[in-house]
């Protein structure tokens, strides 16, 4: 769903470039670096980058004989664009694609913590909660490829449905905070998640 949203809003190259630069606003990249990290072709990228810089969404700097591009935080719609990308093509898409092979074993996957709340620093991990039958090792292996793409470490918390519901029922602070604070859904939505969290198996009233 989120992939469709992002691809409807932005053309392919634009989506990839903005996804990289606006979600790493402190970083400068040269064209070949952008091409490598976004899996695009440097030749075609030049024009796209120049257009975005001309519009004031990116800032272009020349260092030596290299042109460096960085996100323009002063752009009046920087926050809004970054927020759209965070919720669409940015992390959610990358994580959703990585978790796809495990989709049958995941009821809910979501980002919580500083990234979901938009108060992340360049060194923040991406905290991911997964509820389902997938094992820790399978999740760790599936998410491994995302580290480089997102430029962040990903820290998964993998819960069985019953274990998660138990935490909610016991008013565990960590679990309740996830319920209350902003989150970004990767698999499943808020309704399904509420349902899982209220889940009580027969005869289990703890």
């Amino acid at each position: 769903m989120s992939l469709t949203l992002a691809s409807v809003l932005f053309k392919d190259y634009r989506r990839r470039v903005l996804g990289l630069l606006l979600l790493h606003p402190g970083e400068s990249y040269h064209v070949r670096e952008i091409a490598r990290l976004t899996d695009t072709v440097a030749g075609t990228l030049h024009k796209e980058l120049a257009t975005l810089a001309k519009a004031g969404i990116l800032v272009a700097q020349t260092r030596g004989n290299q042109k460096l591009y960085t996100a323009n935080r002063e752009c009046p719609v920087f926050e809004e664009l970054a927020s759209i990308l965070r919720k669409t093509s940015g992390m959610v898409d990358v994580l959703a694609a990585a978790l796809e092979p495990l989709s049958e074993q995941i009821d809910t996957a979501l980002i919580f913590g500083s990234v979901a709340q938009g108060r992340e620093t360049t060194r923040s991990d991406v905290d991911v909660l997964l509820v389902g039958t997938a094992g820790f090792a399978a999740v760790a292996e599936a998410l491994y490829s995302c580290h480089e793409v997102l430029g962040r470490e990903i820290n998964p918390k993998v819960y069985d449905k019953r274990e998660w519901a138990k935490l909610i029922h016991s008013n565990n602070g960590f679990a309740l905070e996830i319920m209350e604070k902003p989150k970004m859904f990767i698999v499943g939505g808020s309704e399904a998640f509420e349902k899982i969290s209220r889940y009580q198996s027969a005869g289990d009233n703890t």
Partner: peptide, 12 residues
């Protein structure tokens, strides 16, 4: 952070 450890991480 004082986060808790899920059973899945312990068994792994």
């Amino acid at each position: 952070s004082g986060d808790i450890i899920p059973a899945s991480a312990v068994s792994e």
